[in-house]
Design a protein around this nucleic acid. Sequence first.
DNA 1: ACCTGAACACCGTTCAAGT
DNA 2: ACCTGAACACCGTTCAAGT
Lengths: 253, 253
Amino acid sequence: MTPHERELTTTDADGHPDADAAIVLGEDPPSARVPLDRRRIVDAALEHIEESGLATLTMRRLGARLDVEAMSLYRYVPGKEDLLDAIVEILIGDMHEDPEVLAAPECGWQDFLQRLAHGVRRVALAHPKSFPLVASRPPEAPWLRPPLRSLDWVETFLSGLCSDGFSDEAAVAGYRAFTSFLLGHLLLEVSSLGADIGPLDVLEDGDDEDPRLRDHPTVRRLRRGLGEDHAAAEFEEALEELLNRIAVIRVEL
Amino acid sequence: MTPHERELTTTDADGHPDADAAIVLGEDPPSARVPLDRRRIVDAALEHIEESGLATLTMRRLGARLDVEAMSLYRYVPGKEDLLDAIVEILIGDMHEDPEVLAAPECGWQDFLQRLAHGVRRVALAHPKSFPLVASRPPEAPWLRPPLRSLDWVETFLSGLCSDGFSDEAAVAGYRAFTSFLLGHLLLEVSSLGADIGPLDVLEDGDDEDPRLRDHPTVRRLRRGLGEDHAAAEFEEALEELLNRIAVIRVEL
DNA sequence: ACCTGAACACCGTTCAAGT
DNA sequence: ACCTGAACACCGTTCAAGT
């Protein structure tokens, strides 16, 4: 694709170099490939993870994807660990840019938390294989419990609640309940998605039997229900319950 | 070191072989080191992770810890991935051996789930740096939603509920609610523990200011509360709420 | 200014060879 | 039977050198 574009822009069918024209028009330098750039690197890493998984992400492979040798990446990224951190920052940034999420809590804290939860869920579902990084990378502020990454996110959350009548203690308690809720639900949902469930693994309720089920009669009996995906509905329901619980915290603390 | 031991045990200072004496006493072969063994390898890996973190776990280092070259490990473990899976199995096994957890649900499903939850939490807290593997390793049964590892665990859970009046549908719904609850709470709790929080990171409420807090006034204001660890109490409280919710599921489904 | 070749230390893993 | 030496392919990372 990139070579294709390059061909089209550097010479036309008659062999005329038309690079000059492009420059005159103020476009990118003919096709001396766009110089590398930190954001482009992080995006490519994200793409790779979603396509092929975190385990195969390699500085060398990432370089190849960008038509560059691995060493070039180090001009823009201090190292692989920092690259993974940068991915997390992009994911969190996506959340913050979402206008749905960003909107101030004018319609009350319940609406605010609803939008926040759905915003995080959208990001998680859009990047199922990368999302677990958000939970596993060492946090920006380790003294913060729970140590979710991104002080920006925490600030948004706490100031949102405090602006709608939460006491300091209630806001902190709400923060804890909300984050563990999101983590549990989204990590599980995302891990079913990332599992690359082969069509043969669906375990039809036909007469054929998975040998592993011989010693697990209850799992076998309930296997149809266990295979169904009700993640969306369960998320809504559990979120509703959570908001009720936070409402109690709000008036009690 | 290894050659040193060998010298000391196979011959004494006068050149007498003393291996026979040891054998006569019925002890381990003098100290020709205990032959390797799959369980010993997995235990050593667990120890290494808790001491030094998953990132530094290496077949070569693991070999060194066992006074053996890395290649020897491959006689007992097919590869590094399988080793990580084996660690998860040990953790889950620990849970199942806990008599507190294992006891049949004779005192009702609420007591049963209480014991189960606390059993899982004990294991998580005992191995904070290894526990995240339970959530991140690809599951034994990918068609199972959520895909928690270990069919044994799922079987225990479901048959426990079904033996105390849960319909099939209610048991499945309860399973989903329970696992996402445990995952969220324990991963967050364990990640605060594993963070190796330096004493300087506690962020005293003294007058010194972390520069990162300049743009996060609410976090700064609430930092004392955010640093406190109420994980145990919050776990109990949230578990109580969860059991209430499951009670509703039980009668409704 | 931006990229690369060559190099270094360290991986996971295999296999023929040692004891 | 159990372990190791030597080797292979592949990592992350550095740095002097190329354009």
